[in-house]
Design a protein around this nucleic acid. Structure first.
Length: 699
DNA sequence: GAGCACTGC
């Protein structure tokens, strides 16, 4: 076996780690950093009294890399070398080298903020800049000050990003470890194409006709474009003259493809046959396809972004970064010298592409992360000034604080509440954690556990349907329950309860077009959540799914619990039509997503009030996953919204101590609701909200 | 009356 490049650097690495608390390692693909760094430090005595942690952004990586290291050291996995991922801890007292996902390490620091069991923490693949890695980077900066004498931190990064990480850690040394990639010839096209599907098609055919054997990997943005390109490519290749070139197979590859179709790319190709793999960025890092010699890079990727000023998510096609472009190109040089065809001018690469992808922390809602940091109780840390490698905007942090305040996770001074502490223990978004705690009070914990678990997996539940399939497939009427008109949360609950009644039958999932793996995941999450809840309650709670349909048909308790959890995600229907306005600082006009099962009354009107799981902008702003709630539950929440003072929430550096006085929100009593003058009611709530919106609350 | 890239606790 050829010696991995990193081993030639062993002395250098050890020397530099000895002298410095933090080191940045630029390890190119194939350098062996993920498997070797831990072993080198182990050989040099870093595991004598404590162990080495290596984080990975993905579960499969943690498992497969630890397996290899165990093998190389000749030990049984789970003993000296182990891994810890959600639902699976394969470590023991003997473990001295531990691979874990970055999320698991964050959870560990909840119970031990100084992470005393580790002598070395290696943040691997830090250039991917997952939300969790970024938080860990901030925590590490603090930890090395606290544990200067007995903690070493190693961060692996990409070429273009290393300097920045080094600056973040007071100019710590950077060590370059070359990889084992073959050279990749890069070609740019002179003009930005009108359609990258067409441009990819042309590039692919050119390769097929002119270039020697070797598979082609094409990076597209999503399922739609992939299917379009696959069918165009099939058509073109069939029309090529018989015998003019070798055979070809065309394989789509994206996340919503069923696993049995995904693995087709791993079976070796038949001889004299070229494979075209048309993929999303799943092939950039998550899946490695062997045999690729040519890469066609569209230069685009789909990215989910959160806008803190509107509270809305959108899924946008954006330009990739230089780091990403290089990563894609590198996929052509794994087995021999390759070529990468970039469907954009080199000027665009140099002058327009960002060096690195905008980190997730600047593209997500931070409510969960802020709550997590608050719960760590770091004495010297003010969340708004937390030392992030790339700080999120203050708008985004304030948005998180407001959300946390409305659901009682922090008080008006921005300090974490007891409720908030409990919420941080749960591996859920704050809204769902809050729902669980409220549900426990209302006696519907079992149902809420199910809803929370179902929502954690929601996008991977329904079997992927593509447009082309839809046309072919007859619309089979679904036998699944419909939420009894109350909305999507209730439907998710009903689906799971039906599955439970079949004793978690796999065929039942298939018959109902539900992804088996998704449903099994829900089962695991539900179990984990109920265990955590029981542990926190220090006793047994009612988490069993009742076989009897004991509750009335209105799911009142559960909907009330959801209303508390989603107090920051409330919307009110507008008068005489089915548009909604959201409550809160940033009132938005939105609609119920057409996929929702929420039903209208006999006059065609939707419920007056709903909570929503998320706002997503596609062709329009939509509320996804909504649940009908009652107006009287809304009143206290509005009062709370009205009393919010953002400058106090954010730690109040310029505390004027002057609480803005507002008249109490004057909502009708329950009695008024029975005989409504709806317009009047609406206008009063509207007025209260307008007053609220009109106030300018600045820092 | 729409459409969904990829992860993870």
């Amino acid at each position: 076996m050829a010696i991995l490049p990193i081993l030639q650097f062993e002395e250098k690495i050890v020397e530099i780690v000895e002298k410095n608390p933090v080191v940045v390692i630029i390890g190119e693909t194939g350098s062996g950093k993920s498997t070797q760094l831990s072993q080198i430090l182990h050989r040099r005595g870093y595991t004598k009294s404590r162990c080495i942690a290596i984080t990975q952004p993905r579960r499969v990586a943690a498992v497969s890399v630890s397996r290899r290291v165990a093998q190389e050291l000749g030990v049984r996995l789970g003993e000296e070398v182990g891994y810890a991922i959600r639902f699976e801890d394969r470590t023991s007292e003997k473990t001295i080298i531990k691979y874990l996902t970055d999320g698991v390490l964050l959870r560990e620091s909840l119970s031990d903020p100084e992470l005393r069991q580790y002598s070395v923490i290696i943040l691997d693949e830090a250039h991917e800049r997952s939300l969790n890695t970024d938080i860990l980077l901030g925590l590490m900066k603090r930890l090395i000050k606290l544990r200067q004498s007995n903690l070493k931190v190693l961060i692996t990064s990409a070429t273009l990003d290393g300097e920045k990480v080094s600056r973040f850690f007071s100019n710590c040394p950077i060590l370059n470890v070359p990889g084992k990639l073959y050279p990749v010839e890069i070609q740019h096209i002179p003009e930005t194409p009108k359609s990258y599907v067409e441009a990819s098609l042309k590039a692919a055919i050119d390769i097929h006709v002119r270039e020697p054997e070797g598979d082609v990997l094409i990076f597209m943005t999503g399922q739609d474009d992939i299917e379009k390109l696959v069918s165009r490519l099939e058509e073109r290749i069939q029309n090529l003259e018989e015998g003019s070139c070798m055979d070809a197979v065309i394989l789509p590859l994206h996340g919503s493809l069923p696993p049995e179709l995904q693995i087709r790319v791993f079976s070796p190709p038949s001889p004299n046959c070229r494979r075209f793999i048309v993929a999303t960025n799943i092939a950039e890092t998550s899946l490695t396809v062997d045999g690729v010699v040519y890469v066609i890079d569209s230069g685009f990727v789909k990215q989910r972004q959160y806008n803190p000023s509107t509270g809305m998510y959108s899924l946008d096609v954006v330009q990739i970064s230089k780091v990403q472009a290089n990563q894609r190109a590198g996929r052509a040089g794994r087995t021999r010298p390759g070529k990468c065809y970039r469907l954009y001018p080199s000027m665009v690469y140099h002058d327009i592409f960002l060096d690195a992808t905008v980190p997730e922390i600047q593209r997500s809602s931070l409510a969960g992360s802020v709550l997590y940091l608050k719960s760590l109780d770091l004495p010297d840390i003010d969340i708004l000034n937390f030392d992030f490698l790339d700080p999120p905007s203050s708008e985004s942090l304030e948005d998180a604080l407001k959300q946390l305040y409305i659901i009682d996770a922090i008080d008006e001074d921005g300090s974490i509440t007891n409720l908030g502490r409990t919420m941080a223990e749960l591996p859920l978004e704050p809204s769902l954690s809050r729902t669980l705690l409220e549900a426990n009070e209302c006696g519907c914990l079992s149902q809420a556990l199910t809803v929370a678990a179902m929502l954690s997996a929601e996008t991977s539940l329904l079997l992927g349907q593509s447009k082309s399939n839809d046309k072919k497939r007859k619309q089979v009427p679904s036998n699944l329950p419909n939420g009894s008109g109350w909305g999507d949360h209730i439907q998710l609950l009903q689906i799971y309860e039906l599955w439970h009644q079949t004793d978690y039958n796999i065929d039942w999932c298939k018959e109902n077009n539900l992804k088996v793996r998704g449903m099994m995941f829900v089962k695991d999450v539900r179990k984990q959540l109920s265990q955590i809840m029981q542990k926190m309650a220090k006793g047994s709670l009612d988490v069993k799914i009742s076989k009897r349909w004991k509750e009335g048909p209105d799911y009142r308790a559960l909907r009330k619990a959801l209303c508390s959890g989603y107090a920051n995600q409330l919307a009110e229907r507008m008068i005489r039509h089915n548009g909604f306005r959201t409550f809160g600082f940033k009132s938005q006009l939105v609609q119920v997503h057409p996929s929702s099962v929420l039903t209208a009354d006999e006059d065609g009107m939707l419920p007056n009030y709903v909570v929503y799981h998320e706002l997503i902008v596609t062709t329009r702003p939509y509320m996804r996953n909504v649940c009908a709630i009652e107006m009287q539950w809304v009143r206290p929440i509005l009062a709370k919204l009205d009393n919010m003072n953002v400058s106090k929430l954010s730690g109040g550096t310029n505390q004027s101590n002057e609480k803005i006085q507002v008249a109490t929100v004057d909502l009708p009593k329950d009695a008024d609701i029975a005989k409504p003058s709806i317009d009047d009611t609406d206008s009063r709530i509207l007025a209260a909200r307008e007053r609220f919106l009109a106030r300018k609350i600045n820092k």
